[in-house]
């Protein structure tokens, strides 16, 4: 089947499919490019629904199992939809020593979220991430593109509340 027949998916509109086709077109003749393709497609859609992975597999001439194998191996890829804002809490050693555990439990309690989960209203996703290398600011939390340093458990909710 030609890879240009788009499967139907509620979270992927025609503009997104056009971007996806452009990405696949750039990578389909380059060996070892499945990770880059998945990354760019995830940037377009927000996550990787299984029909999209099948489609990418057809485009790159790879069996779906290879694509799924790669997507499930790397922490960057998500097969679940994300919230409007992703809260990434740094779980590096420096942040741990400086009390990120308290920050994490405060967020979990306040929004009834679990690590790796998304709130029911899709406002926030909560992720525990590996060291962001900003240890000078520990404990560190990143919301979207904004890095917040020296996040103390009694202040963290004030910061999060500014994101609608």
């Amino acid at each position: 089947m030609a890879y240009t027949t788009h499967p139907r998916h509620p979270d992927i509109d025609n503009d997104m499919w056009a971007s996806i086709d452009e990405i696949i077109g750039r990578y389909r003749h380059k060996a070892g490019s499945v990770i880059a393709t998945l990354r760019e497609c995830q940037d377009v859609v927000g996550y990787l629904p299984p029909p999209l992975m099948d489609y990418i597999g057809r485009g790159l001439n790879l069996p779906p199992s290879d694509v799924y194998g790669v997507a499930s191996f790397y922490a960057l890829f998500s097969m679940e939809p994300k919230g409007r804002h992703t809260i990434r809490v740094c779980m590096g050693t420096a942040c741990y020593v400086k009390g990120i555990k308290e920050v994490m439990s405060r967020i979990e309690n306040a929004y009834n979220l679990e690590e790796g989960g998304t709130s029911a209203d899709r406002r926030f996703s909560l992720e525990a991430v590996r060291c962001l290398g900003a240890c000078g600011l520990a404990p560190v939390m990143v919301i979207g593109q904004d890095t917040h340093g020296d996040v103390q458990s009694d202040k963290v909710l004030d910061i999060i509340e500014t994101y609608e």
């Binding site: 060996a31 070892g32 490019s33 499945v34 990770i35 880059a36 998945l38 990354r39 290879d66 194998g69 790669v70 191996f73 790397y74 922490a75 960057l76 890829f77 590996r130």
Partner: peptide, 25 residues
């Protein structure tokens, strides 16, 4: 070549597998 968040890819043979576009084992 950008990684995709797997600590084990710092190991040399895993890193090479990852550049080849495979699971970084």
């Amino acid at each position: 070549y950008q990684g995709a968040g797997a600590f084990v890819c710092g190991e040399e043979t895993a890193l090479m597998r990852s550049i080849e576009g495979k699971r970084g084992m």
